[in-house]
């Protein structure tokens, strides 16, 4: 696949950048004051963690002369953060990390912003979604669960997820469509809460990200059924006594043809020069070479695809179209 080739190329580029970094090259542009790192979500969530991780490693390895300053702007499902960046046209000292709410929030609420109002910098990783059930539930495979759903009444099975009309509910609706049976979707504020609701058996299943549920999986409280991606996650290290992330089958192979990944990407305000964008791309390439990043992405079982420039824009354009279609089918678009 050309993704693999691309990855190799990126690796080479990053290595080269790493070599140059050691000689402290003069950049065409460098930040002259602290760089605001906007997180369009609350403190403690996945995006916030990643932003603070980046802030920490950039400072620790002295990759940038000025520090990152993390600012949470979570109002209106992240709209507050995106609007802030949209309105800061031409400001080179501001970056934003995205979740799927880059697409879902404007579509669901009608708040006027779009990724085209921003400058795409780089895709850092893609977050996976896994179908989880309580370990005491009788379903051993995704097929078991699908059969149970089919046999049950509409709305009998309960799915907990983060937020309303956002990624978790979109997956739920796609799942309902494939199975042909309605579920009851119950929105919660954070992924951690969702996982605990499943451990406490208040709901029947969740589509938590790996990092949100790994602790409960390892303790034997939850069971992963399948991953909503085209291929299994590439992490062969055993997480529990018997299973690794790699051992979780894809949902497609289990007869559930639903694929969904969430963008963890970086954007900037519109109207900044290419030299500015190049500086940040270079910065994130250096971060990707750090052992801390490797450990972090493996713990969270991220899909570590890295993209910049045209590839990134194409990916985002496609993702937006997919979201629009999924949300239209689900009836989630703002009236």
């Amino acid at each position: 696949m050309n993704r693999k080739i691309f990855r190799k190329a990126a690796l080479a580029a990053a290595l080269a950048a790493g070599v140059f970094a050691a000689q402290a090259p003069a950049y065409a542009w460098e930040p002259t004051k602290p760089v605001e790192f906007i997180v369009p979500a609350g403190t403690g969530g996945g995006a916030d963690q990643m932003a603070r991780f980046l802030q920490g490693v950039v400072a620790k390895h002295n990759l940038m002369k000025q520090p990152f300053v993390v600012v949470n702007k979570s109002g209106g499902a992240g709209a507050e953060g995106f609007l802030d960046v949209k309105n800061a046209k031409g400001e080179p000292h501001k970056v934003i990390i995205t979740l799927s709410n880059l697409f879902t929030t404007p579509l669901a609420t009608g708040v006027p912003f779009n990724w085209k109002d921003l400058t795409p910098v780089a895709m850092l990783a893609l977050d996976e979604f896994v179908l989880w059930v309580n370990a005491e539930a009788p379903y051993k495979t995704a097929a078991d669960y699908v059969n149970a759903l089919k046999a049950g009444n509409a709305g009998q099975y309960k799915m907990a997820g983060t937020g309303s009309k956002q990624e978790d509910q979109i997956i739920t609706v796609a799942l309902e469509k494939t199975v042909g049976k309605k579920m009851t979707y119950v929105p919660f504020k954070g992924g951690g809460d969702v996982a605990v609701q499943l451990v406490g058996k208040h709901v029947d299943s969740t589509v938590n990200n790996p990092i949100e549920a790994i602790a409960h999986w390892r303790s034997g409280a939850l069971r992963p059924l399948c991953v909503f991606d085209g291929k299994p996650m590439p992490y062969p290290t055993k997480v529990t006594a018997t299973m690794s992330w790699q051992d979780i089958p894809t949902c497609k192979s289990a007869g559930l043809d639903v694929e969904y990944v969430m963008l963890r990407g970086i954007f900037m305000p519109a109207g900044v020069g290419q030299d500015v964008v190049d500086f940040y791309i270079d910065l994130f390439k250096k971060v990707r070479e750090l052992p801390e990043w490797k450990k972090y992405t493996e713990d969270a079982a991220f899909n570590t695809t890295f993209m910049t420039g045209k590839d990134y824009v194409e990916w985002v354009t496609k993702a937006e179209a997919t979201h629009r279609q999924l949300m239209q089918e689900a009836g989630f678009l703002a009236k």
Binding site: G45, H216, Y296, D299
Partner: peptide, 22 residues
């Protein structure tokens, strides 16, 4: 359990994950 009982606990939780503690 990994459930934050307060916003501060939520941030500390993020810290644990970053230090590689689950």
């Amino acid at each position: 359990l990994g459930i934050p009982g307060s916003p501060t606990a939520a941030v500390l939780l993020g810290g644990l994950l970053i230090w590689g503690l689950q």
